[in-house]
Design a protein around this nucleic acid. Structure first.
Lengths: 190, 190
DNA sequence: CTCTCCTGCTAGCAGTGCTAGATCTAAGAG
DNA sequence: CTCTTAGATCTAGCACTGCTAGCAGGAGAG
């Protein structure tokens, strides 16, 4: 029995190795640099072993994305719980979200622009995803009035997502980022 | 002289042929189906002629994107000028924007998620781009109070962009789209 | 009618994601 | 302790991508 558990453990370790290698490579050189050959070289195995762990490259990106959601959830939670006042919390969470996207652009892309086949707003969505959205939900909850909580959260989230994505490929002037963020938050804390 | 003008005209026609072929192919089968070989076959020329017109595939996508901005500007203008009341105009323009993204997903992608090298919020941005943004600007103008017009417009635009992009790859529940849109608009018409 | 240029083509390169078949290791049976 | 068998891993290759060098062939100029 123990020999099989050792094998299973080694397999799991290698799977983590693949995901972290993909993540680090993407964060340092962008997703274009993450090829199956390059990734195989990085983990010191041949290409086909990747396919014994994941269905394809998209599945690897999805796994990286799930890790990203766990990170994001953690950072949002820290921002939310650091402040008592609900409006200040909203501002802090919004700033944390924007900062996350700015500092980890490749990771953010994997989470939101790529990896379409990741189940999301459904019951079978990975826990990390629900947790990240849950943080936004708890931030918005004290400020909700007439509107539906989920709808309000989704709309606020969309605003943040739009800000960071449009700015990231030069659609918005980089200088006024703070003002736009403040404006968005003010419109959602009333 | 006239012989050279004929050649120039034929060249321009072929260039338009390339762009419209790329656009139609993308809209009917997605950007993954738009390969240089497929595109060459579609216009009944060999691959290398594409490179005598455009620097590469990205440049073709950028040309398609510019066409898309002209379309978007037209639709936004129609929505804006159809209504007299500023708040209703904002709602109409927001709905028109979302409808555009929903009906032309591939075109929308070319405009906002791909084609990074397209000059945007600068002076050398193509006129169609400035026109499209200008429509949003004129819609927001009557509703601006304490905030800066450009910043307010950019933030509203980000909200719209976030809504349509997050919904398009399953990040948001499709059913509540109208409610989110209405909520966003209400937060920006006060 | 000849020469020249230039347009558009064929063929090919380097790289991509992915997979079939061989190989080699290591576990289990006698 | 040996032999067989099964599973994990690798080598080699497929079909495709964007892009380009270098060659034909027909246009225009003289």
């Amino acid at each position: 029995m123990s020999i099989q558990t050792r094998r299973a453990r080694e397999r799991a370790e290698r799977e983590r190795l693949i995901v972290t290698a993909a993540r680090e490579l993407a964060e340092s050189e962008g997703w274009d640099a993450v090829t199956t050959r390059r990734l195989a070289e990085e983990i010191e195995y041949s290409q086909p072993v990747l396919y014994s762990h994941f269905k394809g490259k998209d599945a690897i990106m999805a796994a990286v994305a799930v890790e990203g959601f766990a990170d994001l959830a953690g950072e949002l939670r820290a921002a939310r719980t650091a402040v008592a006042d609900p409006r200040e919390a909203l501002a802090a969470v919004g700033a944390a979200y924007a900062l996350f996207a700015e500092r980890r652009p490749a990771l953010y892309d994997a989470m939101f622009t790529h990896a379409v086949d990741l189940p999301f707003a459904t019951a079978e969505a990975p826990p990390a995803l629900r947790e990240a959205f849950g943080e936004l939900l708890e931030t918005v909850r004290p400020l909700v009035r007439d509107d539906d909580l989920e709808t309000l959260t989704e709309t606020f989230w969309s605003g943040l997502h739009g800000l960071v994505t449009l700015m990231r490929n030069g659609r918005l002037r980089h200088a006024d980022h703070e003002r736009r963020l403040a404006l968005l938050i003010s419109r959602f804390s009333g």
